[in-house]
Each structure stands twice: as C-alpha cells, then as structure tokens.
C-alpha cells in the first residue's frame, strides 16, 4: 500500500514543485485564462476568506487535537467513567454545562468528543456537549454581550435556548438511541496496554511520543474536513448576495428558516457570529436573530463535514433535523416572550 501511495503522491508533488519553479523562473506569468482567473476580484476575495477562516481555526483545532490526545494517553477510561454522572438527566445537564469549564469552539470539540465517547462517556452526554459547548461558554457569552449591548435579553435568550435545545436532543438520544453514534472502527484502543513498560522513564517517554502520534494523526483526520469546509464556506460567502437575502426578511416563518440556513452556510466561529447577527438587527425580528445565534454554532457547513468524520451519516442528519426543528420552535416562542 505504501508503494502505491509512493507511486501517485511523489509525481504529484514533483509536478507541484515543477509548476512552482516554472512560475518563479517566468516571474509568475501564467497562461492567459488561468492568470485571469487568479487575478479576478472574486478569486482574491475567495482567497482572503479561505485563508482567513483557516488561520482562525488553526489554533483551536490544534488545541482540540492536543487535548484529545492527552485525554487518550493520560486519562484512563475508569477516570472518565467515574466523573460522568450515572443519572441520565444529571449527565445531560453535565454535558450541557461542560463548556463553561472547557470552552472549546466547534472546530476543536469534535476530536475531544470522539475521544470521550470512545473512552466510555455515554454518547448522549457527548452529543449534548457537542451542541451546547460552542454557545454556553464564557467567551461566547462576553462576545454576544458586547455585540448586543442594547438588548441583553438576546444574550440570555441565546444561552437559555441553546441549553434547552441541546438538552432536549441529549434526552432524546439517551432514550431512543441504542447503537453507538460513532462511525465504525470504534473498538476501544488503549495505548497504555500494549506499550510494554520497560522502565519508568521509558514509559513516560513513550506516553509523550504516543500523544504526539495521536495528535498529528488526528490533525490530518480533522484537517481535511476543516479545509474542505473552509473552501465551501469561502465560495458561498463570495457568491452569496446579501441583498437577495433581505427580500425574504418580512415573511415570518421564512425569515426564521432563512437566518438558520444563512448561519449554516456562513460557518462563522461562535465567538464572532454575534457581530454578524447584530448587523441584521432591525431587518429581521429578534427571534430570527436568536435562531441564527443558536443554530449556527450547533450545526454549520464546516462542522457538519467534521462531524461526518466521526459520527454516522444517519446520526448527523438526525442531529441537524432535530436542532433545526427545536431551534425554530424555541426561537419563535422566545420572540413572543421577549
């Protein structure tokens, strides 16, 4: 297998290098059509967004991958089991509020949750954390508060609705889901078992190298979805016209669904989406903004792709459908209450 990869990858890399060298030699004079494409305003905008999203996500995904690897190597399954509540409802509440203690954003969370579930944390707790974590954490609270200075009820509404939606989905999973939501090949795998400890020092050394091995493998595993997600998001952002969006703003139900679809496509990090939401203030009703703020961090294009790396397709689709329906209902209810 290595031979075949060798056979395909090396010429590809070689070709890439040849192109680079050629470009340098000819001072970046590309053939007309390609150079026109690269020079075009849209390509430049695309590049700005694509790289911007990636740069912003790098620190968080690295953090998530490292944290997940540390969990894998240094925290035993028993410890995880000991710390997760037995009671289902308590467990779901625990999952919902875990973000307060571990404020990871959605890019960094998926590897951590996959690890936690593999290590014996009940899947429904993991799913609740997955949905609630990107919203119910101090960083997102403060950025939402900054963006919605004039209407703090939006901040509390966002937190409350996110917790309610995440916990409801968690409860549904706890009650009805029997199989593991993870993709196949989920047999437990504990490295500490088969690294025969030679000496104490050797063992610690082994643990660190094992941590790095896990982290860098997972980085590539998640990274491809991140890059593909960023690619799609950048394409959509450069081609989607906001003027056409505004035309549906005054139809009540469509306005809500529209803001949620918009949140899905934009895939902005939950720490900055409040500033986007506030720019729609006055155009859409507060409930629709709330739907944007709650649905976006839970499910968006970028993290759907990353979820697919971990969860079964059926589970991901179910999660999206449930989050969509519950957020829609909840935010319409909130609109009446606020």
């Amino acid at each position: 297998m290595r031979q075949t990869i060798f056979r395909y990858a090396t010429p590809l890399l070689g070709l890439g290098c040849a192109i680079m060298l050629a470009l340098i030699l000819w001072n970046r004079e590309l053939p007309g059509a390609i150079s026109a494409l690269l020079q075009s305003v849209h390509m430049q905008s695309f590049n700005l967004l694509f790289i911007g999203i990636l740069l912003e996500a790098f620190p968080f995904i690295l953090l998530g991958v490292l944290f997940s690897a540390l969990l894998q190597v240094f925290v035993s399954d028993e410890t995880i089991r000991k710390f997760t509540p037995r009671n289902k409802v308590a467990g779901i509440l625990f999952g919902g509020l875990l973000g307060v203690v571990f404020p990871l954003c959605e890019c960094g969370m998926i590897p951590v949750i996959r690890r936690l579930i593999r290590k014996g944390m009940p899947a429904y707790i993991g799913i609740t954390y997955l949905l609630a974590g990107p919203i119910i954490n101090p960083i997102v609270f403060s950025s939402t508060y900054l963006a919605f200075r004039a209407s703090p009820e939006m901040v509390y509404g966002r937190m409350a609705l996110a917790l309610a939606v995440a916990m409801t989905i968690g409860l549904l999973f706890a009650k009805f889901a029997k199989n593991s939501p993870l993709r196949a090949a989920s047999a437990l795998h504990d490295h500490s078992d088969h690294h025969a400890p030679v000496s104490r020092v050797g063992r610690i050394k082994n643990k660190w190298s094992s941590t790095l091995a896990h982290a860098s493998d997972e980085l590539f595993d998640m990274g491809k979805y991140l890059i593909f997600g960023a690619l799609l998001t950048a394409v959509i952002q450069t081609s989607l016209d906001r003027e056409s969006i505004a035309s549906v703003a005054d139809q009540p139900l469509i306005g809500y669904m529209f803001m949620m679809a918009f949140a899905f496509l934009l895939s902005i990090c939950s720490t900055s989406d409040a500033f986007i939401a506030v720019s729609f203030n006055g155009l859409f009703p507060p409930g629709a903004l709330l739907a944007f703020l709650v649905f976006g961090p839970m499910v968006d294009l970028k993290n759907t792709l990353m979820m697919l790396s971990t969860f079964k397709l059926k589970v991901v689709l179910l999660l999206i459908a449930l989050a969509f329906a519950l957020t829609l209902g909840g935010s319409m209810l909130a609109e009446v209450l606020i």
Binding site: L38, H42, Q44, L48
Partner: peptide, 19 residues
Amino acid sequence: TILLVPTSTLGSAMAEKKG
C-alpha cells in the same frame, strides 16, 4: 492559493455582497 493569488484587501466587490 497564497502563493498564486495576488494579495488584495476586502473591497467594493465584497462590500456589495455583504451589504
């Protein structure tokens, strides 16, 4: 893309899209 696409800043074209 970083190497090949000329650097630019967000400008009118994106302003029109973003509103």
